[in-house]
């Protein structure tokens, strides 16, 4: 177990190094000019000498490896720099934005997990019937719908026409922060979270269905039926037990899709989360923030995958090493 964790930590470190080197290089090759981004609208007032001075002050005249080393050392000290758009430390921005995103992603994650699982089990049990076909059709349609388009439709329908939900933002506009209540936040969270989970449902349901169909075709289910177990009994005794693991693992491993989806959903709903911050940082050339978000999202996705692995390891008796609980006596 200790060895396993050490291995994973080592893997995380190499991943983070690789991600930072790669994103640093990509930014270097991109047309983003940090000085231009910093100067912004004052471009006409800033002469070439001043321009060069700023570049020199930031160390932009140094060779690439040196700049990377300086940035890397700063990161190691916990200093991610200052975001140019928000004029605040990158870590503070990420922390605040991540909390908002986390609420959004967690809601979507639970929604899609629960509904997707239920739909998948229903379709798997009714395999080949109209119920199954209907669920499959629904899931495939959703799975092939671009999220931003779906988000726009949801916005149009529920926020504009029906006015059930606010049009965007994380909190009501024009209300001081200290007056914003929890229910206000939830109210603003619901529509983006629903949108994000709708496409998630499709994936979870199709995977659950597939796993359940496989289990139902297995020898041990045939034997269970030979022993007089009815369809529902088979599902409760053997079906759920055997699909729980792969499905839970998949659910944790879906953090990356969730994160990708949240970027689009937050953009459409102008929801002030990490995804929106990433888009702004990219569009407006906020290099420190962009690098920070990239590193952080790598960490986030890694955590999801690690959780999936640990779960498998803890639950599946077949992966447990010898001398463990089940081998006693």
């Amino acid at each position: 177990m200790l060895l396993f964790l050490l291995g994973r930590i080592l893997r995380l470190l190499t991943l983070l190094v690789a991600v930072s080197v790669l994103s640093f290089l990509l930014l270097e090759l991109s047309p983003i000019d940090p000085v231009r981004a910093y100067v912004g609208a004052d471009m006409l007032k800033v002469g070439p000498e001043q321009w060069a001075k700023i570049a020199e002050y930031w160390g932009l005249d140094q060779p690439l490896p040196e700049r990377f080393a300086r940035w890397g050392m700063a990161i190691l000290r916990g200093d991610f720099g200052v975001s140019m758009i928000f004029r605040r430390p990158v870590l503070a921005v990420i922390g605040e934005r991540f909390l908002a995103s986390l609420a959004l992603m967690l809601t979507a994650w639970v929604f899609s997990g629960v509904f997707g699982f239920a739909l998948g089990v229903l379709a798997g049990m009714k395999q080949g019937t109209w119920t199954d076909r209907l669920i499959k059709w629904y899931c495939l349609t959703l799975a092939s719908t671009p999220l931003f388009w779906l988000a726009l439709l949801m916005l149009l329908t529920f926020a504009v026409w029906l006015s059930w939900f606010p049009i965007g933002l994380g909190v009501p506009a024009g209300v001081p922060t200290y007056e914003v209540t929890l229910s206000d936040r939830l109210y603003h969270l619901l529509l983006p979270a629903l949108t994000l989970s709708i496409t998630g449902v499709a994936g979870v349901a199709l995977h659950t269905r597939q796993k359940l169909v496989e289990v139902l075709q297995s020898d041990y289910v045939l034997f269970a039926r030979a022993r007089g177990e009815s369809g529902l009994q088979v599902l409760l005794r053997h079906g759920l037990r055997n699909i729980a693991l792969p499905v839970t693992t998949l659910q944790f491993a879906s953090f990356s899709e969730l994160f990708g989806g949240s970027i689009l959903a937050e953009q459409v709903f102008s929801y002030p989360g990490l995804g929106q911050a990433a888009v702004q940082a990219g569009l407006r050339g906020d290099v420190p923030l962009l690098l920070g978000v990239v590193a952080f999202s790598a960490l986030f996705v890694f955590a999801g995958n690690l959780a999936a692995e640990l779960l498998y390891w803890l639950i599946d008796p077949r992966l447990r090493p010898k001398g463990d609980a089940c081998e006693q006596r």
Binding site: S218, Y220, R227, R237, R241, D316
Partner: peptide, 24 residues
């Protein structure tokens, strides 16, 4: 058959694959 199988008519299967892998 549904009433009898498992109770009066029992099957001894071919291999251990016919047991649920995750059940004691």
């Amino acid at each position: 058959q549904a009433a009898l199988r498992g109770r009066e008519i029992a099957l001894i299967p071919q291999s251990v694959n016919f047991l649920d892998p995750l059940m004691r």
